[in-house]
Design a protein around this nucleic acid. Structure first.
Lengths: 148, 148
DNA sequence: GGGCAAGCGAGACGGTGTCTCACTATGGCC
DNA sequence: GGCCATAGTGAGACACCGTCTCGCTTGCCC
């Protein structure tokens, strides 16, 4: 996720919210900017901490409320990786999309994408007769850096 | 998951725990029997409720402790589907393994499996240089029954 | 049967996420 | 520019899931 496409996302997100009839909001702007510059998913608590340390903090209620709004508009996905809290990550407006390896050694979340995997998911989804709106793949194991 | 293979799993689970040097335990037996007869994943709280309504209840501490033990022995998987609490499900001793659709209309968890999907996951895992111990796929959408 | 450690229960505790309610700020209207 | 309705926000209480501790019970080996 390059810085260029990230700030692009922030603009896109603000435009979508505007078109949906939402007023401007300081907390929302701060959260959008924060998410835009992240390389990977953040938890709500991490967002709270980051903002508190910056010049524009936001209350916990606002954070969850805003994240839900962004999710409803398809600007953000919520990931449940199993470490107690769920994590939030921006969605590329171009429709690109990735999954994660949760490294059991260092605890990091490593993003990856694969067209073949996406095709397999579409195929099984059709075969089973589901109408799917989204999906999540989480691998558990060791990332490249943690293998010796 | 047929009743036959389910009680087979219960026997298998008890044998594994026995071989690992664990003593018999009332709470553990009750949880194994309960899991054995479930069609799909249960949350820890649901297990607590089920047992309380039966003749053999178990404390919350025991439930989590036992589920962790079963997970360590590869008898159970923990799924994080995003509805706050995580869910636990037995693992087929034959090594078969399935994934889930979380129906956004009725809230049910619908199991499915697909060999092509498994192959795709192995392939991308190798391509990325990960050493994976497990994985999870969750689709979100409408199950067959909820489409009109 | 006796002793010891594994297994277990009860309840306190901590953290994440939800809810309420009052305050603030935005944008349309005059 | 000033006013007003209402969307947006903050503070804090609250509920819930999961963890931890500690003392009691039970299974197992001698």
């Amino acid at each position: 996720m390059s810085t260029a496409s990230a700030s692009e996302w922030a603009e896109h997100a603000r435009a979508v919210m505007d078109q949906a009839g939402h007023r401007k909001g300081g907390a929302r702007n701060a959260i959008i900017d924060l998410l835009a510059e992240q390389p990977c998913a953040l938890s709500a608590i991490e967002i709270e901490d980051h903002l508190r340390r910056s010049d524009r903090s936001a209350s916990r209620a606002s954070i969850y409320r805003i994240l839900e709004l962004l999710q409803d508009r398809g600007l953000v996905v919520r990931l449940d990786v199993g470490d107690a809290s769920s994590r939030y990550e921006l969605i590329d407006p171009g429709g690109e999309h990735h999954h994660h390896l949760l490294c059991e050694s260092c605890g990091r979340l490593v993003p990856f994408d694969d067209a073949g995997l996406e095709r397999s998911i579409d195929r099984v989804s059709r075969r089973m007769g589901f109408r799917t709106h989204g999906h999540e793949v989480v691998l558990r194991g060791d990332c490249v850096a943690c293998q010796h």
